[in-house]
Design a protein around this nucleic acid. Structure first.
Length: 347
DNA sequence: ATGCATGAGAT
DNA sequence: TCTCATGCATA
């Protein structure tokens, strides 16, 4: 069996193991990415670009760079954080070495579809309000506290074996609408972008109404005891709300956040009934910063060739005086950005 | 809210 | 070595 839908985070017992869980896959997705607007350069068709192109791209990018450039430093450093791990909270991931991510939620691929536009999105920011509610343990937020940096080796919750093919099996495409297809066996979730969009918006609103921050939601997720699901960071919750995640990622996270929301609202209601109770070593990782001029050059290169070879990357790195790894990661992140929902062809 | 990074799994 | 899901650090 392959899973057809999988992703039903719930349905399994609340214990840990459950190594499997179908990863889901939904069916739609890919295509959205296909059409992204190219920043600027016109033809990216030249795939084999060579020095010449490189220079050309750079020149294009250099328009205003002329003067400023020069930053003495060389970024990079990838420092790797940590050295001490002392804590063990449930911190979700760890950068240092441990697993964490539950990719559990991944599904991917949908054959196609997309379209429609709208973008509602909102962007309000109001997240932090402080609540007074502690939602029965849920949003309490601290559970996973993360004060310390990493550590945690136990993120037990997350990870599972999950996915089988992340992107691999995309074959099914019944092309129909968006959804449905997939087998019926499980009921897959709707890959409908519209629905995701509205859910994200409603989610944010209700979350604010509850008085919890994005970070609170992330850590409270662990309290849900959904197999394979642990805490998530503020970043991820924020991205979910602003639709800046891949479509598959949105689809995977939706049921989880939906479950949390219901639980949190339920807990709050409970408290409402009882009026009284609720009143109530590390080395830090340093983030590399790529200066504007270099960034412009990178963008120009990207427009020409989004996936430069290792050699090209090295050449670019040298020209811009950046570490090769920094350049490589920049390209990876840039590609990921294109795939995010917001910008995708979906709209 | 986002930029740069890590790491698991797929290629 | 890439893609993806995620996160820490930061603007």
């Amino acid at each position: 069996m392959m899973s057809m839908n999988s992703k039903q985070p719930f349905s399994m017992h609340p214990m840990l193991h459950e190594p499997k869980y179908a990863p889901l896959h939904s069916s739609s997705e890919a295509i959205r990415r296909a059409c992204l607007p190219n920043p600027s350069l016109q033809g990216n068709i030249f795939a084999g670009f060579d020095e010449t192109l490189l220079q050309r791209a750079e020149a294009l990018a250099a328009v205003d760079i002329v003067a400023q450039k020069s930053h003495p430093f060389k970024p990079d450093a990838t420092y790797h954080t940590m050295t001490t791990m002392t804590s063990m909270t449930c911190t979700p991931t760890s950068s240092s070495g441990h697993l964490h991510h539950p990719s559990v939620l991944t599904s991917h691929h949908h054959p196609v579809h997309h379209h429609q536009g709208s973008q509602g999105l909102d962007g309000d920011l109001l997240d932090h309000l402080t609540p007074g509610i502690s939602l029965g343990g849920m949003a309490g937020s601290d559970v996973c506290s993360s004060s310390h940096s990493h550590a945690a080796h136990m993120s037990a919750i997350n990870h599972m074996q999950h996915h089988h093919h992340q992107q691999s099996m995309n074959m099914h495409q019944h092309g129909l609408g968006s959804h449905g297809s997939l087998g019926g066996s499980g009921g897959d979730v709707e890959p409908d972008p519209r629905e995701l969009e509205s859910f994200a918006e409603r989610f944010k609103q209700r979350r604010i109404k509850l008085g919890v921050t994005q970070a609170d939601v992330g850590s409270a997720l662990a309290n849900l005891k959904i197999p394979g699901v642990g805490c998530l960071s503020q970043s991820t919750i924020c991205r979910f709300e602003s639709l800046t995640l891949s479509h598959n990622n949105m689809v995977a996270l939706k049921p989880i956040l939906e479950a949390w929301l219901e639980e949190a609202e339920r807990a709050q209601r409970e408290k409402m009934n009882k009026p009284e109770i609720f009143n109530g070593g590390d080395k830090k990782r340093k983030r590399t910063s790529i200066a504007a001029p270099e960034k412009r050059s990178l963008e120009a290169y990207f427009a020409v060739q989004p996936r430069p070879s290792s050699e090209k990357i090295a050449a670019i790195a040298e020209k811009l005086d950046l570490k090769k790894n920094v350049v490589r990661v920049w390209f990876c992140n840039q590609r990921q950005k294109q795939k995010r929902m917001k910008f995708s062809a979906t709209h």
